[in-house]
Deep mutational scan, measured.
Amino acid sequence: HNLTITQGKLFFHYNPKLCLSEIHKMEEVSGTKGRQERNDIALKTNGDQASCENELLKFSYIRTSFDKILLRWEPYWPPDFRDLLGFMLFYKEAPYQNVTEFDGQDACGSNSWTVVDIDPPLRSNDPKSQNHPGWLMRGLKPWTQYAIFVKTLVTFSDERRTYGAKSDIIYVQTDATNPSVPLDPISVSNSSSQIILKWKPPSDPNGNITHYLVFWERQAEDSELFELDYCLKGLKLPSRTWSPPFESEDSQKHNQSEYEDSAGECCSCPKTDSQILKELEESSFRKTFEDYLHNVVFVPRKTSSGTGAEDPRPSRKRRSLGDVGNVTVAVPTVAAFPNTSSTSVPTSPEEHRPFEKVVNKESLVISGLRHFTGYRIELQACNQDTPEERCSVAAYVSARTMPEAKADDIVGPVTHEIFENNVVHLMWQEPKEPNGLIVLYEVSYRRYGDEELHLCVSRKHFALERGCRLRGLSPGNYSVRIRATSLAGNGSWTEPTYFYVTDYLDVPSNIA
């Protein structure tokens, strides 16, 4: 807008934040220059609390790290170098490059900038070799853009010569660093050979998330399962459950009422301010606690030095998902009996873990797994792929695949051998790939016309006998059925096997 004052003059007093240069501009645009008398524009009460600059400061050096910015700028000295009290560095987070010096300023003089007072450097006698002032900004957020400017702080001049310097606002972004852990990993099994893994992005990506790394490792069953005799009275049979499938998407929606109208769909109840505040506090606490764990609990591995020492970490090797089922080394339970199943799973520490690289999504279907087997899954978020990966501390989750139908069934015939004193040795093959492992066998036998009897055969007993022995049988026709019990439950009964026990007292003698 054009402003013209045809008559009258300007009068400025007691404006401590208004620089004289701005008042002189007002004289020019209003056409009143030359009308004012000496005392109409006070030299001592206008701009006496402001830094009124008329020179431009330029930054000469900028260096960044993930949490620091090192700045240096060209030296500046007023005509009387004693008038320079120091520099004021202003900075704040700036997602967009549209910041002005006066953003967030209120009537009390406060604003949204963080201000650092910096002492002037030592003055050199040689004007050509003056030290460049600077400042190291610490405690910054990774991968965050900051708006920065600097200006001088000078003393009051009796001659009211307006001098000083100020830089333009520059924008500097800190470097990326390792992201925080992925949030809320959930693993479920939808079949006997697959596990579905879902997660949420890290709360602090500290860069642009480029991919996720998912490692999985087959877990050995508890050692007590191999040692305890679950045929003993009072000892509860062990059981394991597989990871249940995901709930429906509708039930997972946030901010939804727990109660549904019987007449149909209901609208979600909005969260109160107290609920939102509580969630923010919980989120802040979780982030602080995660940072504490990362800094205190997890110790970084030592990389190899120039002395030739090897990095103890196993090298990563990509495998196809079809090879995942046989990740671990199978060892027989008892070496003397080769027909026992290889369900003991000690994992070799030198073995390469299978892994998958996930790009542009937060889910993965891990296939080719062994049925009813526990897996430990390790999830890392990465925001750099080359020249070397920059990934987060791992988040861990466990899951067990679903049982395989008929995996616990005894394959092959049940054979028998009759000894003296009416002892019958029953023999059968253990299931080759049971659900988890076989903890015991149930032997059901009966003599024709009598009630059915049951015998429990422990895992250890089966390994020693290759089956079991029935003792003290009365003469007669017998039928026997056997079924295995694994961590997933009972298998199917075998087809009945028949044998006849004679009275050993009636056996004919070869003595003449």
Rank of each mutant, 00 (worst) to 15 (best):
S248C: 15
T502R: 09
G264R: 13
N339M: 07
S479C: 03
D323L: 07
S341K: 09
S223E: 13
A399Q: 11
S257H: 05
K278N: 09
K460G: 05
L437R: 12
E290D: 12
R316M: 14
T210G: 07
K302Y: 10
S348E: 09
E452Y: 12
V358F: 04
K302C: 10
D273P: 15
F289G: 04
F337H: 07
Y259N: 09
L437E: 07
P205E: 03
V296Q: 13
L453E: 06
R447T: 06
Y498N: 10
S320V: 11
A399R: 05
E281L: 12
S342T: 14
E356M: 12
E258L: 12
N339F: 07
E378K: 08
A484R: 00
S304E: 07
K460A: 11
P332I: 07
L455E: 15
N208V: 11
A405H: 13
C267Q: 10
E356Q: 07
S268C: 15
S268Y: 06
V397R: 07
G467M: 03
S363C: 12
R319Q: 07
G491W: 01
Q380W: 07
E265M: 05
N326S: 13
C391P: 03
A309M: 10
G467L: 03
P475G: 10
D506Y: 14
V443P: 01
H352I: 03
P403H: 02
P354V: 07
D229T: 09
L235G: 07
N360I: 12
K406V: 14
Y498D: 12
T328F: 14
E217Q: 15
P312F: 11
C269Q: 04
R353G: 15
A394D: 08
G412M: 13
S509T: 11
L235H: 11
G207M: 15
L277K: 13
H371W: 09
F246R: 05
L437I: 13
A463E: 07
A309I: 10
R353I: 15
N477A: 06
Q256M: 05
T210I: 14
S239R: 09
K361H: 04
L440Q: 14
C266T: 09
D222E: 04
E290W: 05
Q252N: 02
K287G: 08
E452H: 06
E279V: 06
Y292I: 05
K357Y: 09
G308V: 15
F298R: 13
C269P: 10
V501N: 06
E249Q: 15
E217N: 15
C391N: 01
G449D: 11
R483S: 03
E224R: 11
C391K: 02
R240C: 14
V424S: 01
P338A: 08
R316F: 15
A220M: 08
S239A: 14
S251G: 05
P354A: 10
K361V: 07
P270A: 06
Q380S: 05
V457W: 03
F226Y: 11
Y292L: 06
D323H: 14
R376A: 04
E247G: 08
S243D: 09
E281W: 02
F462L: 04
P338Q: 12
I276M: 06
E442I: 07
E420R: 14
T373M: 07
E279D: 10
M427K: 14
T502V: 13
A463C: 11
F226I: 06
L440D: 04
G368P: 08
F289N: 09
S223P: 15
V359G: 12
K236P: 12
G322M: 14
N490M: 05
E452S: 03
V501R: 02
A220N: 09
T288I: 15
L225V: 09
E417P: 03
F285Y: 06
Y375W: 02
L225G: 02
E351Y: 15
I418V: 10
P244K: 07
N477K: 08
E362V: 13
T386V: 03
C269F: 09
R483M: 13
Y448W: 15
I438F: 02
R286N: 03
R466I: 09
K357N: 10
S283M: 15
Q275W: 10
P238L: 08
F372T: 02
E433C: 08
P338M: 12
S268Q: 14
N295H: 04
D385C: 14
E258P: 05
A335K: 10
N422K: 12
T307R: 12
E227F: 13
L213H: 05
L321H: 09
G472M: 09
E249T: 11
S203Q: 10
F499R: 01
W242I: 08
Y500A: 12
S283V: 05
T288G: 10
L213A: 14
I438G: 01
N339V: 09
E388C: 14
E404Q: 14
E351F: 09
K271Y: 05
V507M: 14
D261L: 09
I209N: 13
N295D: 05
S341H: 10
N360C: 15
Q256Y: 13
S284A: 14
R316L: 14
G412H: 06
V359E: 08
Y500I: 09
E417H: 04
P475D: 04
P403T: 11
F355P: 04
T386N: 07
P244S: 11
P244W: 07
E351R: 04
K432E: 12
P354Q: 10
R483Q: 04
S262T: 09
E290Y: 06
E362G: 04
E465S: 10
N255E: 07
F289A: 04
V501P: 02
S444M: 08
P300I: 05
L369C: 11
F226S: 08
G207T: 05
T343R: 06
T303Y: 15
T241K: 09
Y230L: 13
F246H: 13
G368L: 04
A263D: 08
T497W: 10
Y500N: 12
T340F: 13
I410H: 05
C231A: 02
V457Q: 05
N383S: 04
V393W: 11
S305P: 12
E260M: 14
R316H: 13
E351S: 14
A463K: 08
N206W: 14
E465H: 12
F372M: 06
L235M: 12
E495S: 10
S239N: 05
H416L: 10
E433F: 15
T497S: 06
L321P: 10
E442L: 13
L225E: 07
T502Y: 10
E465M: 07
E442Y: 11
T401Y: 00
N339A: 09
N208A: 08
G476C: 00
G374K: 10
S458I: 05
K271F: 12
K406D: 09
G264Q: 02
H294M: 14
Y259V: 09
I438H: 02
R318A: 09
H254S: 15
R301Q: 13
N255Q: 13
Y396H: 11
K432Q: 11
Q275G: 11
S341V: 11
S348P: 12
R481L: 09
P244H: 14
Y375F: 11
T415W: 03
L277N: 15
R469W: 08
C468I: 07
Q256A: 15
K278F: 07
V457E: 02
G234Y: 07
S315Y: 11
R469V: 09
E260F: 08
E430H: 12
D408N: 13
V439A: 11
F355M: 11
L235D: 04
T401N: 01
W242C: 03
L487A: 05
C269V: 08
G306R: 12
Y441T: 02
R400T: 06
E249H: 06
Q380P: 00
N360D: 03
N360G: 08
A336C: 13
S243K: 03
L505S: 09
D261K: 07
T340D: 12
L437S: 01
L232E: 08
V424T: 03
T386I: 14
S315M: 13
R481V: 09
R218A: 06
T494F: 02
R390T: 04
S243A: 12
S398C: 13
F355L: 10
K302I: 10
T502N: 12
D250S: 10
A395W: 07
D273G: 07
S257Y: 11
V359S: 08
G476S: 01
G412E: 06
T415E: 01
P245A: 07
Q252T: 11
G472Q: 06
L379P: 01
A405E: 13
P238V: 05
E290A: 14
N339H: 09
P387Y: 14
A463G: 12
T303W: 07
L440A: 09
Y375G: 00
E224V: 05
N208T: 10
